[in-house]
């Protein structure tokens, strides 16, 4: 393996290790708070505990998609001015989108389980659920687009445009419960509106959001580094292949391979 790979094959740094340990500790405490310390709900009973995973998951998904959009915009605007062709922004966009898709999937799964207990059904095609699954599918499409073979800069531009188009759905998902009649309840917390959650449950929800944010940030940083390592690996492989080709030329027929 080339030396440059050895030097940078780890995705962890002291800071991300601290972040990872913090995420694990915070996750354990979140489980204790959510499962044992916070009280059952007066209507939903124990089922309310799903709130502490379901709601923060979609918040982090929204945050990740915001990051994807900003990075995509920066890629489109600044790619020509940067030495790396803006691939730094492209990597951020890709890693954030992957984390966003994971958390959107988690939101859908926890929502279905919660819905079965409370609504009496796993799924209904109401506006919130429909737009959320649409969000999931469009960002899956975005990730698929990133995997298609093309020049990295061309692929980055295509992906950036799709990321910006996909983001249109994020506010639609969030406000769908206000704009249309849905089976889904209104937003649990909104800016400028008094929360309808009592003390312990409210603080557990905020704490869970903080925990999921730490885990999400940790995942994005590591995913970014894995993407960068994959690029280094491909560049090194290409160099090795070109080098081996140059040495393959049969002796005594130097003129055959010369380009005039």
């Amino acid at each position: 393996m080339p030396e440059s790979m050895d030097d940078s094959k780890m995705t962890a740094t002291p800071l991300t290790r601290v972040l990872g340990i913090l995420g694990i500790v915070a996750g354990v405490l979140m489980a204790v708070l959510g499962l044992f310390i916070s009280p059952p709900d007066v209507v939903q009973g124990e089922a309310v505990r799903m709130l502490y995973l379901h709601v923060p998951s979609i918040w982090i998904a929204y945050g990740s998609f915001v990051l994807t959009s900003i990075s995509s915009l920066l890629f489109l605007v600044r790619s020509r001015r940067r030495e790396d062709g803006g691939r730094h922004y492209d990597r951020i966009a890709g890693s954030a989108a992957e984390v966003g898709v994971v958390f959107t999937g988690l939101t859908l799964i926890t929502g279905m389980l919660w819905g079965k207990v409370t609504w009496g059904t796993y799924w209904q095609w109401d506006a919130r659920l429909t737009t959320t699954v649409l969000l999931f599918v469009t960002y899956l499409g975005y990730l698929a687009l990133r995997r298609l073979p093309a020049d990295p800069i061309v692929r980055g531009r295509r992906a950036a445009v799709m990321a910006l188009i996909s983001f249109i759905n994020v506010p639609i998902v969030h406000y769908s419960v206000d704009w249309w009649r849905t089976l889904h309840q209104k937003a649990s917390l909104s800016v400028g509106r008094r929360p309808e959650i009592t003390g312990e449950m409210y603080w557990t929800l905020l704490y869970s959001a903080l925990t999921v944010t730490i885990v999400g940030a940790w995942l994005i940083v590591h995913r970014y580094r894995v993407i960068r390592l994959e690029e280094i690996r491909d560049e090194e492989n290409l160099k090795m292949l070109i080098s081996s080709r140059r040495h393959e030329r049969p002796t005594g027929s130097a003129a055959d391979g010369e380009v005039s």
């Binding site: 709900d41 609504w119 309840q185 449950m201």
Partner: peptide, 18 residues
């Protein structure tokens, strides 16, 4: 077919506010 449309209000069952 019946679906329960619960609200976004959450209150502790320990407070006995039923």
């Amino acid at each position: 077919r019946m679906l329960v449309k619960h609200t976004n209000e959450y209150a502790s069952a320990n407070e006995g506010r039923v």
